Amino acid sequence: MRARILSAAAVAAVLAMTQPGLAVADEADDPSTTVTFVVTSGALSLSVPAFASLGSGAPGTTISSPIGPCTVTDDRALLSASWTVTAAETDFAHGTQTIPASDATYTVGSVTTTGTITVTPTNVTLSNAAQTVLTGTAGVGDNTATWDPTVSVNVPASAVGGLYTGTLTQSVS
């Protein structure tokens, strides 16, 4: 019996020296276990429609339509997250005819959120340069914001009939 007690004590001493994180509990102590885990984090992303048709209208009128839902997904799992969505528009072209981007507006409309995020929309007159259209602040954990912006184009009275195409580039950072 005495040999067993000495052997157990020797094993405990060797374990304590070779594995410092492994403590041998005294019989009088309440044993405890440190438990850890990692909360994973993802990315910040923006999804937008690939195509939108505003419809048609005569020269001198305004052509306007929602372009479809846009969604910011913030899976970074931060304590105080913020992000900014920008929009830039190329000039609208039909062959050699153009309607400048500045003849168009971007109206955010209502924004639906999930999680904890404070969202501030900004309606803009579009241009070739990126402009802030939505900001998210005070985000906690994962969150989303979804909106369906309306793009309106004031068609000049001098516009020539035909299909005009431009590219709306939205990004989040």
Rank of each mutant, 00 (worst) to 15 (best):
A93P: 15
A88P: 10
P69W: 00
S64M: 07
T86K: 08
V85P: 14
A87R: 00
A87G: 09
S82L: 08
A93R: 15
A93C: 14
L79N: 15
T71C: 02
A93V: 15
L79K: 12
W83Q: 06
A88M: 06
W83S: 11
S82F: 13
I67W: 00
A81N: 07
D74E: 04
S64F: 01
W83K: 04
V72P: 02
L79F: 12
A93K: 00
D75S: 06
G57A: 07
A58M: 01
T71W: 02
A87K: 02
G68Y: 04
W83E: 08
P69Y: 06
T84A: 14
T86E: 06
A87Q: 07
C70G: 05
V72I: 12
V85Q: 02
L79D: 14
T86V: 01
P66H: 01
A87E: 04
A77R: 06
R76I: 04
D75Q: 04
D75G: 06
V85G: 04
S56R: 04
A58L: 10
L79Q: 14
L79Y: 11
V72E: 02
D91C: 13
I67T: 08
P69T: 12
P66K: 08
L78Y: 11
A81L: 10
G95R: 11
R76V: 06
T84Q: 14
D74A: 03
D75R: 03
S64Q: 13
A77C: 05
W83R: 09
T86H: 05
P59G: 08
A93S: 15
H94W: 09
W83I: 04
E89S: 14
T62K: 12
D91V: 00
A88Y: 03
T61S: 13
D91W: 11
C70P: 04
R76G: 07
V85N: 10
A58V: 13
S64Y: 12
T61M: 08
C70F: 01
G57K: 03
